[in-house]
Structures are given as structure tokens and as C-alpha cells.
Design a binder for these strands. Structure first.
Lengths: 197, 197
DNA sequence: TCCTTAACCTACCAATCGGTAAGTTGTCAA
DNA sequence: TTGACAACTTACCGATTGGTAGGTTAAGGA
């Protein structure tokens, strides 16, 4: 890896996998953007699948670190969760590559034989579930009720993030800008009304 | 189209496009499942893009019809919306192909030059927005507030639907069954608390 | 100076992709 | 009986895919 660092390489791979999907993004296209040949990429990562795995692992590490770093800041559990979900939504809207790739992974991982991709979200989700359980009124709630409520909130965010280009095409840039401005307030409303007693 | 009807043909195409994506599903693979050669498909539809377009159009027609047929049943607007979203969630969980394909379309339609796919959801979304506006307390709400709230609810459903295989991989079939059972109740909770005064 | 190693390269491979060209087959109306 | 047409078929095509084999080049330690 001469000119670029490993991080820059994974940046490009992550972006192309996010934009085109695993099958749509060729290693030749990724290498082209880096000014390399595809054989250079294969030299470093062995196969396309392993390169993709490296991208996934970096994402899972980032997601987990980002969660623990924002959650330990406040004392009120609900405020911790609200702060995390809102900053997650904002940063995902700014750089949607991660959300896009994870959404594609949800759609594809039934087909592709990946042992790495299926389980990497588990501890992340478990941490969030534990967080919800600390909120007054949720301590004795059934595990599945907590999980479903949480997952619906995550869905509300991620669906909006990956819909951005399509909404732009339907309603135009100006309207979508209005949508984004309204997002945080309405999401907080739903969050409060569904999680607070 | 000898043995199979046009509907059966589109069923197979829809399922494969949903499972593998536009680039991942080859016309040869679709034809194989129908007992045909890929040239037979090209004979009928001209190109892969047009076949995909036919699948998309059928979905948009179904979605629209399904909306108007369930919405005109009750008099209470909120109950209409609740009934529609809950039956949509249930039927999507039973046959997730449509949701999967639409989710892929959200991710891909920035790249593929399709004029057909970008706008077909507009009237569907507009109908739902109008429905929300009839709910007491929402009549004078800003358009973007209504839209965002609605879109977050749609996201909660569709994200859970396309996550089904992955959740199965993480938590096992038994837990996911519990999740599905809990889904309707928790979704109703969020729906009521976010849309009713 | 020599040797190893990492970081690349060119050249090639079989498989698969979407699509074209040119038939073949069966049905049905005139 | 014939002719037209739809529904397919086999036989290709060039382009692209992921991956292999076998170099070349430069840096750095012994």
C-alpha cells in the first residue's frame, strides 16, 4: 500500500460497496479509483469476499465505539438513548455509506455464505436493549417488547437515510431539505411517546 | 408463454430480483426456474431492464390497489390508517419479496437510469399523507411534519421485514417468532402515541 | 554486496453476463 | 392447403467478472 493508507483503501471500498452492492461493485472498479490494478487488491486481501469482510468489520467496530462513547456521557438513561439515536441519525444522513451497506447486508446475507456478517450486530443490539431496560417503566418489560420497539426506532432512522436519493427524485432537493429539518423533532416526539412513561 | 401465465412469470422474476437484486439476478436464472431459455424472456420483454420495469409496475399497481381497498372500509380515519399499516406489515412479513425489492430500489435507483422506478411511489405516499391530515389534530400540521412521521412509521415496518433473515441468523427462529408476535402490539403503541392527540 | 520481502505489475484463464441472428415449431384464420 | 404469426430454440457475440501464474521493482537488514 504505497500512496494510500489502509483506511483510505477501505473508504473507497466501503463507498463502492454501499453504492453498488457486493455483486455490483467489482474489485477492478475499486482498484481503479485507488490508481491500482485489481491484482494489487487481491494481493492484499486474497479475495473480494475478504475485502468485503474487512469493510464490514471496520463498520462494526466504528458502530460499537460510537455507541459506547456517546452513551456514557449523560446520567439519565433516556437522554443517553435519545442523544445516541439523534446523533446517529444526523451522522448517517451526512455520510450514508455505512447505513446503505448495512441495509444491503440485511438484504443479501441470506444468500452469501458469510460467517462474519451475520452476527456482528448482536452485541450492538444487546447493548441498546440493556439501555432501554434501564429506562423507568421498562425494567420488567418482556425482552421482545423492548427489542421490537427499539428495532422500529432504528428502522425509522435507517429507512429515511437510504431513501434520501429517491425522495430527492420524487420531491426535489428543497422539499427533502425541509424533511431533514423536521426529522429530528418528529423522531424525538415518537421516541418520547413510545419510551417514556 | 406456453405453460405459465404472465403472472407466474412475473412472480418468479419478482422473487429473484428481490432475493439477489437487479445485477445479481440474471435473466438466465429467471428463465431456468420457468423451464425456458433466457432468449425466450428476451423475446417477450426485449431487455432485462424492461422485464424489471414490468415487475416494478405490477408492484406499484398492487400497492396502490391494496391501499385504497383497505382504507375505504372504516369511517374513523385513524382506524383506517392503523388497519392499513397493520395489514401491510402482516402481509409483508408473509411474503417479503415486494418489500425487499422496493428496499433494493431505494438503494439502487440513484445509479440505474430508470425513469419508471423513481416516481411510482409518489401518489401512494401522497394518499397516505392526505389520510394523516384527516386525523384530528393533524389538519393544520406542516406538510413535512406529517410526511416525516408517516415515513418513520413505514420505515419501522419495512426495516423489520427485510431484517427477518438476519434476525433469524442472530437470535434463532424461536426468538424471531416472539418478535413477530410482539410486533403488532408495539407498533400500535407507537402509532397511537405518535398520531393520536 | 546479497538476500528477502512487500508491493505492485502484465498476461492470462474459464465462467458468466446481456443481447443479436437466424432458425424451428405449432396454431389458427383465410 | 397455405401463409402468417407467436412462442420458442440453438448458436453465437463481445464485454466483464473473480481469480491464478509469474514476473518486476524497490527498500532494508545481515
Amino acid at each position: 500500500m504505497a500512496g494510500q493508507t489502509r483506511e483510505q483503501l477501505l473508504d473507497v471500498a466501503e463507498r463502492l460497496f454501499a453504492e453498488r452492492g457486493f455483486y455490483g461493485a467489482s474489485i477492478a472498479a475499486i482498484a481503479d479509483e485507488l490508481g491500482l490494478t485489481k491484482q494489487a487488491l487481491l494481493h492484499h486481501y486474497g479475495s473480494k469476499e475478504k475485502l468485503y469482510g474487512a469493510v464490514l468489520q471496520r463498520i462494526s467496530e466504528y458502530v460499537e465505539e460510537h455507541l459506547v462513547s456517546t452513551v456514557t456521557s449523560s446520567s439519565d438513561t433516556f437522554q443517553q438513548l435519545e442523544a445516541y439515536l439523534l446523533t446517529m441519525a444526523t451522522s448517517s444522513l451526512e455520510s450514508p455509506a455505512r447505513s446503505q451497506l448495512l441495509m444491503r447486508e440485511l438484504l443479501d446475507n441470506k444468500r452469501r455464505a458469510d460467517t462474519v456478517g451475520t452476527w456482528y450486530l448482536r452485541s450492538y443490539l444487546d447493548t441498546l436493549v440493556e439501555l432501554v431496560r434501564k429506562i423507568p417503566g421498562w425494567t420488567d418489560a418482556p425482552q421482545e417488547d423492548i427489542f421490537i420497539t427499539l428495532y422500529q426506532l432504528l428502522g425509522a432512522i435507517n429507512y429515511f437515510v437510504v431513501s434520501q436519493p429517491t425522495l430527492q427524485g420524487i420531491y426535489g432537493q428543497k422539499s427533502v431539505h425541509q424533511f431533514r429539518l423536521a426529522f429530528a423533532a418528529q423522531f424525538s416526539r415518537i421516541l418520547r411517546s413510545s419510551l417514556q412513561v
